[in-house]
Design a protein around this nucleic acid. Structure first.
Length: 493
RNA sequence: GGCCCCAUCGUCUAGUGGUUAGGACAGCGGGUUUUCAUCCCGCUAACUCGGGUUCGAUUCCCGAUGGGGUCACCA
């Protein structure tokens, strides 16, 4: 598809405007990535702005955590908090006068009005509308108050909000880069509150005022904003400002395909995926190809590739399932591309506290192609240094008691005799024994595997034994013998 | 429920007014192998339905159905 048309004089400025009210969601990172890539592609700027106008839900420390997680994903912003820029400050609570001024300007232009309705009255009103099965909307009770009355009530210090005066029955249109033109009738738009009674703006006022002030050219945000975009369009028109270009990014659906991705169906925070041991570059790659495909259909690509190839117009308009299988595959691809040094470094935070120092170097080659997530390192390596559970049933699964005991006894005597316990000596001796006795390979080696690790799926047997060391191998083989001779079903050694 | 958006294998996606509808993940089978994993090979699997338009629709239009979003002094 052709590139989104950008006239040469247009400076592409995109933004991401998180609200510090909770955890930063993977969907936010995915949307941020698109804003970032589009700005970079066109040599523009990507702005980070903090929308902290909800004083009640404000979470202390959230701004810092959001900034940190963005960086941990390997992304960054050109203007914003901790960076500054020509439109500073980039935190809405530090820009209050501009919203108040803007709201008053709209009142003066008769595009907005003061409203003194109590929240109780509003709630009653909504209740009645719901009961009557009509869409809840403000009943415009204060819309036609006379100026004298307004002034009188303001003078008494009565609490108020400022609402948008939405025109009756006119078409409200805007262009969405992904979907084309979208049109709704103004009658379905509520007389939205613009300035709250605490003097803070609502999202709708603040976002329009700031996007205009910060010269944002393209607004790429989640699809959930489509339905409030008409309000914003009306605001741009009321101010007499030029409309930016919108692109509403489809939402992520739960891995089970039902509903918007939510906490109730599993992890959603951007941080939690990092904590699970998905690599940030793998996560970004996953976000790139969810709902968008490169012309040549390549799926594994770098950020630089993406910046070069990405065009918001090519984003699929449908909501996409957050496919954990695909993520796991991508993560594995990236994991296997890592150099041993890099992998070792990235594994450090995931090592259990009792992980023996020095063990990682030995096991790295044994686990690197078995890791799906960095977090798997603990489980993949625990039998090397922690007690294992021997299961009698498992030991006897492929053969009878007499044969198994004979195999263990002979194996023990061969391994005990070894003065040098290396991959070469262990492998040669055990293979010779197996071949001399003509034991079934899969049965015999599985027996040793289970006896020595307690598991049926492990790295290659001889390598594993060498890492364990002669002492531990002999000890575990003897324990296996004992458990078979007794008849107790399980034992921890 | 009102309004808005969307519709190709289970999932993500390519694609065209005439194609054996392509790829990737997952699944299944096989090869390599002492297990698992990696790697290699192969297989299964899709144009939601109904009307139009057309010589011909998966593709264009309308409708239905289904899915999603949204209806706060939250963002």
């Amino acid at each position: 598809m052709s590139d989104t048309v950008i006239s040469p004089s247009t400076v592409v400025r995109t933004r991401m405007a998180p609200s510090p009210t909770g955890e930063y969601h993977v969907g936010h990172i995915a949307t941020l990535l698109k804003n970032y890539a589009f700005a970079k592609k066109h040599g523009g700027q990507f702005v980070l702005r903090i929308e902290d106008t909800d004083r009640e839900r404000l979470v202390p420390g959230a701004v810092e955590r959001i900034m940190q997680v963005i960086k941990d994903y390997g992304l960054d912003w050109d203007e914003g908090p901790a960076k500054g820029g020509p439109h500073a400050p980039y935190v809405q609570s530090e820009r209050l006068p501009s919203y108040q001024k803007a709201a008053e300007e709209l009142v003066a232009k008769n595009k907005a009005y003061y409203c003194f309705c109590s929240s109780e009255r509003l709630e009653q009103n909504r209740e009645a509308q719901r009961a009557a099965k009509i869409p809840p909307k403000y009943d415009r009770h204060c819309r036609d108050l006379t100026q004298t009355e307004v002034e009188k009530r303001l003078a008494t210090g009565e609490s108020y909000v400022i609402r948008l005066k939405v025109p009756d029955n006119v078409p409200v249109k805007f262009t969405d880069l992904i979907r084309g033109e979208i049109e709704v009738n103004s009658d379905v738009v509520d007389d939205q509150v613009l300035l709250k009674s605490d003097g803070f703006p609502t999202y709708h006022l603040a976002v329009v005022v700031d996007d205009h002030a910060m010269e944002i050219s393209h607004i790429m945000r989640g699809e959930e904003w489509i339905s409030s975009t008409p309000k914003h369009v009306l605001l741009y028109q009321a101010f007499g400002w030029k409309l930016p270009i919108f692109a509403h990014i489809p939402v992520f659906l739960n891995p089970d395909g039902r509903g918007k991705m939510s906490k109730r169906k599993g992890a959603v925070s951007a941080r939690s995926f990092l904590d699970d041991g998905y690599l940030p570059e793998a996560l970004l790659n996953f976000f790139m190809i969810l709902g968008w495909a490169r012309a040549d259909q390549t799926e594994i690509m770098t950020l630089a590739d993406y910046v070069r190839e990405f065009d918001p117009q090519d984003i699929s308009a449908k909501s996409v399932v957050f496919d954990l299988n695909k993520l796991a595959w991508i993560n594995g691809m990236y994991l296997r591309q890592l150099s041993p040094t890099d992998l070792k470094h990235r594994l450090q935070p995931f090592l259990p506290a009792d992980f023996p120092s020095g063990l990682l170097d030995q096991v790295l080659p044994l686990i690197s192609e078995r890791l799906v997530k960095l977090k798997d390192v603990a489980d993949l390596t625990s039998f090397f240094y922690q007690p294992i559970e021997l299961d009698r049933e498992l030991l006897l699964k492929k053969s009878d008691l007499t044969s198994v005991l004979a195999q263990l006894t002979e194996t023990l005597s061969v391994l005990k005799a070894l003065t040098s316990f290396t991959l070469e000596t262990v492998e040669t001796k055990l293979r010779n024994l197996q071949s001399k006795r003509d034991w079934k390979k899969s049965q015999y080696f599985m027996l040793l595997r289970v006896a020595v690790t307690g598991r049926v799926a492990t790295p290659p047997l001889f390598e594993t034994m060498v890492v364990l060391g002669q002492g531990k191998v002999l000890e575990r083989l003897e324990a296996a013998q004992k458990i078979l001779e007794k008849t107790q079903s399980k034992s921890i050694i």
